[in-house]
Design a protein around this nucleic acid. Structure first.
Lengths: 325, 325
DNA sequence: TCAAAAGTGTTATCCTTACACCCATGT
DNA sequence: ACATGGGTGTAAGGATAACACTTTTGA
């Protein structure tokens, strides 16, 4: 049933390497020189030198960036033709296996100075995803109106189970539907299909609206890297709720407020302080170190550390952040 | 940052095509001739003829099997060297992108007769996953004792965050931990690592126990196909709870009991009748057709159909099957 | 003494789970 | 009439969401 290939295929490993610093989730991007877009770091997968994707990934990340990644998880494999246009397109087809990796800023201070790469706040690429200061203005000022036009001019698309109107409702929480912070990828894909992000234009898609009238919707990235980043954010936001992955982003010791701010930074919304604390406590995810942090303005806060052994007790110890405010 | 490849890589698309018939979840397998193991259908991905993986997959499935697949979803990309040994190994490296596809038995009656493939109950490959008649005997008679030996002889593995004992507890619900029907892949991987499945021996792994003493643990498959199937089952069991995917496996009209039996078949456990019905009703996933099925022994049951429009109303209309019984 | 952030106690509500009973048909 | 599966009402318990208030420091 299997045949040999006719077309040469290259396999690249693309990594969304995440860290949180100064209450901002940040993503490692390859230096965007003047005129170039930012891009995620990636390396070729060579099956001869590396037994698995993950080993391959860890290897070239270590070699190229000297960054220490902890948690690593495969996201998705992207192979669409026409969604990774390269200036020097060789004709060879490229598929990329996307990975999510987590690291601690503090572990990499030195490494970053010499690398030709740096961590950028991820909301630069997705400004509409940051609801920590309330509903972002860009939604009602720009995105929703443009998408509503796109809904109006929409001819029926037989292969799509949902109509344009319903997709807009679900993805962007229009008309009574709640905002779901996990639908990061769905939102990006909708904007792409509507031709409203720069990548869509670059890939030759026509927008329903006059191109000149579309202001830039977040910073664009090279190839389909913004799509991979959207996948990474969505996955991380979801995983947060049932696995203790936040701690991969925290220093050894931290206060509960710092922990809460990190979760808020990632999920892009505010959490109820007391409920968050109760949750952390009842899940027994952390233990006090006894130390107390020299205040950041008010009363000193108790320091905590992650209890590495919870993973052995509870089946799904995440932080099921629930309600609003 | 990206370099060209040195090693030729082939990309295959491997499909776990699922249907449910006679209260058994079934998987399409390529005919296992005498002496050959069963295998999942797969085809090469040719980027020249197909713009995306999914199009490629649908195409060769249609061409090879004449089966009509509805729902399709990417699972994972498998690239481990040494986990897909082929008799005729060419030295070329092969990676496979695994896909889950759902279909209705009734749609394919004719197609199956001519194809050199058939649907096999998936619990033949994973007998320990079917808890519909209570905890399967193979667990306490064979699997757990063997894994306990493996725990005993285990030297510490520095790279693994969890010890062998804890992994056994979590995966197989030993010692107070509950059985989690979604951990299908984790369980298979544990058995593989412990050298207890045939595939592990074939890939050159040594078991901690004398090989002769290990009875076969479910039917083995070719290459790493059983691993892909485990991924598919796990994903489907999880997805069931927050997306209305069951209906991709149901005929147009069905009774609530048939629906329940289908969910039970997939998740491998019994559900509480009343709660299941309330759930379906409160989620407004179905509507009565008015018809009533000519009884299968007792009182005639009302027929229902899936309300295709729910997807437009509710954000996550699944069947969050909860408790026991 | 006042601002700023840490930290706690309590209640209303909903959802999940479990129980026990009645109904309509074929034999 | 009785066996078989279809179909329903209701109460207990736990988790969640929201409320307001006290405490400890630095300036």
């Amino acid at each position: 049933m299997a045949e040999a290939h006719l077309t040469p295929i290259e396999v690249g490993l693309t990594a969304a390497i995440v860290a949180v610093e100064a209450e901002e989730p940040r993503i490692l991007v390859a230096a965007a020189r003047s005129g170039t877009r930012a891009g995620l770091p990636f390396g070729p997968f060579d099956p001869l030198s590396h037994r698995t994707f993950e080993i391959g990934l860890r290897n070239w990340v270590a070699a190229q960036t000297a960054i220490n990644v902890g948690y690593v998880e495969q996201l998705y494999t992207f192979g669409d033709r026409g969604r990774h246009a390269r200036p020097d397109d060789t004709g060879a087809h490229m598929i990329s296996v996307g990975y999510l990796a987590l690291t601690r800023m503090s572990d990499n201070a030195a490494a970053l100075r010499e690398a030709q790469a740096g961590f950028e706040p991820w909301y630069r690429f997705f400004p509409w995803e940051d609801w920590r200061d309330g509903r972002p203005g860009i939604l009602d000022q720009t995105i929703v109106p443009l998408l509503e036009q796109w809904v109006k001019i929409g001819k029926s698309e037989p292969l799509r189970p949902l109509g344009r109107r319903e997709r807009l409702r679900h993805c962007f929480g229009v008309g009574g539907s709640p905002w779901d912070e996990e639908k990061v990828l769905d939102r990006y894909e909708l904007l792409y299909e509507a031709g409203l992000v720069e990548e869509a234009a670059r890939d030759g898609r026509v927008a329903g609206v006059a191109r000149a009238k579309i202001p830039p919707l977040g910073e664009a990235m090279r190839f389909d890297h913004r799509r991979i980043l959207a996948t990474a954010i969505a996955r991380l936001r979801a995983k947060l709720k049932y696995r203790p992955v936040v701690f991969e982003l925290m220093p050894d010791e931290f206060t509960l407020t710092e922990l809460q701010h990190t979760v808020e930074a990632i999920s892009g919304r505010h959490l109820h302080k007391q409920n968050f604390r109760r949750l952390v406590e009842s899940a027994a995810l952390v233990e006090p170190t006894g130390e107390t942090s020299t205040a950041t303005g008010g009363r000193p806060a108790a320091q905590f550390r992650f209890r590495r052994d919870v993973v052995q007790e509870r089946p799904a110890p995440g932080l099921r952040v629930g309600g609003r405010a």
